[in-house]
């Protein structure tokens, strides 16, 4: 049974009691909450996920609850506990989903040191991965979302999970966090896309979440072989410009933009080296999402033909 198919009252009850397990592929997260609205939000943005056995082993448990004491009532807040400990600042009570999503990112980024974690979006086509490392203002999430809606399989919009050894990319599939203008851009690009409600007052502006497609959820245990690394840069009203990037430079930029490169040491060096060696590396400037998606498709086909 999918989460979208569970009766709202039932889901609320499970969230409050034994929790709801979310299988993202490379990790499983158990979510607990006494906030009733959260169940409805999950039914939208996690709609394609199976309501998997909550008792099955999870990698981390997060609890979203109403703040204690005065803050329960006065300028009410919600807080997030990660394995029983409060490691993030509380959020206003009307933004439970952004807090949950950012909290889950933090929890996963600190617990998966068995892999190299790049700060990147990852999509796949024909078994080959496109890694889109995040630079400030790059529009990584928007481009990743557009690719996911444009014939590519979504692995993650935030984490490039690189397996030690063969450097294959592992899915860590979660809703794509869209901000401000991107929300409209994606909605225009694909009117059928399921986007959750907008949360206007977060510290990153307005945030909304794109639910992953059901087919992508089904494929979340399927890795992808490295093939293409694209450093995107959004330039409003600009055309598409593609520049090859020397591999050593790509290595350096990926290492700097990683959650745990420093921690994993030699295994990370080897895995990143293998990822870069096996991939064509480019910088991509774009102003139009559709054209960017097309160009990336061509680059991927070229990389696949060579490799």
């Amino acid at each position: 049974m999918l989460i979208a198919e569970v009766a709202p009252a039932q889901l609320r009850g499970e969230l409050a009691a034994c929790g709801v397990a979310i299988d993202c592929g490379a990790a499983r997260v158990r979510v607990h909450s006494d906030v009733p609205e959260l169940a409805d939000l999950l039914r939208v943005v996690y709609r394609g996920y199976e309501r998997s056995d909550a008792a099955g082993a999870c990698d981390v448990a997060v609890r979203l609850r109403r703040a204690r004491g005065l803050r329960r009532w006065v300028r009410a807040q919600v807080e997030l506990l990660i394995d029983g400990s409060r490691e993030m600042e509380p959020f206003p009570a009307d933004t439970p989903l952004p807090l949950l999503e950012w909290g889950m990112n933090y929890a996963l980024a600190t617990r998966l040191n068995c892999h190299l974690l790049l700060h990147a979006g990852v999509v796949e086509r024909n078994g080959r991965a496109v890694v889109l490392p995040a630079m400030p203002g790059a529009g990584k999430s928007t481009l990743t979302a557009a690719l996911a809606l444009g014939g590519f399989r979504l692995l993650s919009d935030e984490f490039g999970v690189v397996r030690f050894g063969d450097a294959h990319l592992l899915p860590l599939l979660r809703p794509v966090a869209l901000k401000n203008e991107s929300i409209d851009a994606i909605a225009r690009l694909s009117p059928d896309a399921v986007i959750g409600p907008r949360f206007p007052k977060t510290h990153k502006g307005t945030v909304a979440h794109l639910a992953p497609a059901v087919e992508h959820v089904h494929a979340r245990h399927t890795p992808a072989a490295p093939a293409l690394i694209v450093f995107p840069r959004f330039v409003a009203a600009g055309g598409v410009e593609i520049q090859p990037l020397p591999r050593a430079r790509a290595f350096a930029r990926l290492a700097v933009n990683s959650f745990n490169y420093e921690i994993v040491g030699p295994d990370g060096f080897d895995a990143l080296g293998r990822l870069v060696a096996a991939s064509d590396c480019y910088e991509l400037r774009y102003g139009d999402l559709t054209r960017a998606v097309q160009h990336i498709g061509r680059l991927l086909d070229a990389a696949a033909a060579r490799g």
Partner: peptide, 15 residues
């Protein structure tokens, strides 16, 4: 999943 976490623990201690 146990192997994952033990590997992570080993990696962190090595660091």
């Amino acid at each position: 999943f146990v192997q994952r976490h033990l590997a992570a623990g080993r990696v962190e201690a090595r660091f």
